[in-house]
Design a protein around this nucleic acid. Sequence first.
DNA 1: CTTGAGGTTGACCCAAGGTCAGGGTGGACG
DNA 2: CGTCCACCCTGACCTTGGGTCAACCTCAAG
Lengths: 256, 256
Amino acid sequence: MKRGVTIGQAAEFVGVTVKAVRHYHKLGLLPEPQRDSSGYRRYGSGDLLRLVQIRTLAAAGVSLAEIGPLLDADTTRFAATLADVERQLTERIADLTARRDTLHRLADGDRTLLPDRAVALLKRMRGLGFPAEEVAATREAWVLARALVPDGFDDYLTHFEYAVSDPHLLELTRRAAEAATWEPGDPRIDELATAVADHYLADPALLSTVTGLRARNQAATRYRLIAHHGEQPTPAAARLTALFETRLRSAGVVIP
Amino acid sequence: MKRGVTIGQAAEFVGVTVKAVRHYHKLGLLPEPQRDSSGYRRYGSGDLLRLVQIRTLAAAGVSLAEIGPLLDADTTRFAATLADVERQLTERIADLTARRDTLHRLADGDRTLLPDRAVALLKRMRGLGFPAEEVAATREAWVLARALVPDGFDDYLTHFEYAVSDPHLLELTRRAAEAATWEPGDPRIDELATAVADHYLADPALLSTVTGLRARNQAATRYRLIAHHGEQPTPAAARLTALFETRLRSAGVVIP
DNA sequence: CTTGAGGTTGACCCAAGGTCAGGGTGGACG
DNA sequence: CGTCCACCCTGACCTTGGGTCAACCTCAAG
């Protein structure tokens, strides 16, 4: 009878696959045992013991790369390393937990990708009779804005809340939405742009909903992306925006 | 000025590496944007929006493979999938927590790889004057035994606890340890083997510390591995063991 | 003698990118 | 005008902990 067990037996005893055992050999974690006359590996009790130790540590979350040195280290370093590994595990757990919470908020109805305040504002827009597509476009723009200019987003929301509670502005905005369907040459566009611009200029708090996202690094590019998102602008809408911005600029407002 | 931002800007805005963006293209997660005259990718606001959505989901723990379908799915499936992902995350958290606890017990002083009862027993052995190497060898044998025959290990410990509280047996065991240094032909070996065997035979509960690990699948091989671990046996010790086993067998005890 | 189970090596696969190699572009500076 | 540097392009190989497949060899039993 040949002494020592085959790889299959060793693997089964310890509760691991044959492939895993060979993997440990390749990593130098487990020394290659002697071979019998036909080239089969033959494992003795010492090998099995080592294998058990490897599995115990691996099951506890120690990476294979760390196990080798660990098993050969003295008690002090052994304990220290284990403590370190434990810390890493704790970190990963915290990370995963945070992810799960994010996910939970994400999955929870409509508050997809936006904070509660923003969701509430969008709802209010719908309640005020804004067309569904415009609300949807606004939502997208906000998602973008929050990602691109996170620091300014809260302020922006605050100002937007203020703007929404202004009946005159609401009326103007509603007309601006209609305007997208007008002829680009329609003289009412000019008139409307002036009216809106004047209203903004008359109220510094309101004005900052426009300028609030400015004044950061790479501001111009980011602003353009946000401001012109979702447009495929009709010529009339484009003209309205252009006139509006021109008028603000000529009044000394800095728009990127 | 060319419209759209370059991949580096897009990546920076969204807080991701250039390589990651290209990776998303390769996975079909993010459609390839238009190229400018020099072949550079140029990203518009829609692309950025998509990128933000991808990052949001990925950061929440959704795998990239799932994100594609997810972003194109309707609200119902979106919510369902997210719930599923959340469940998986919860599972992984539980798993990691279990690992950390295992690790914690492992790191906690000497109870490395063995349950508390076993550690206590080993300590008691040391207290009873067993030489350090023998305690160490026993510890290794137990680690092996627990892994190879987990079901029988608790019973085995119980019996061992009983055996340790038997003064006569302790004395015999101590002499057996000495015996390893005797000449293989020493007649005292014969005598000692008989005495030990008789003592075991006289007490069925004690006998089961030997037989307890038997009676399982592949029992013989496993038993051999455990029993003969750490030996590099001196001729005298081997002879003692052989005589002991022979005597038990001839008394009708089944030893693998 | 054949057959089936189990052994041997080697190569490729997964997720989510990182890193390196070799080469093209664009803008700033001397 | 040349040069530099930062940025872009593609493509290929690396990571973890093994799983899976292929092609071949060996052992024990019928």
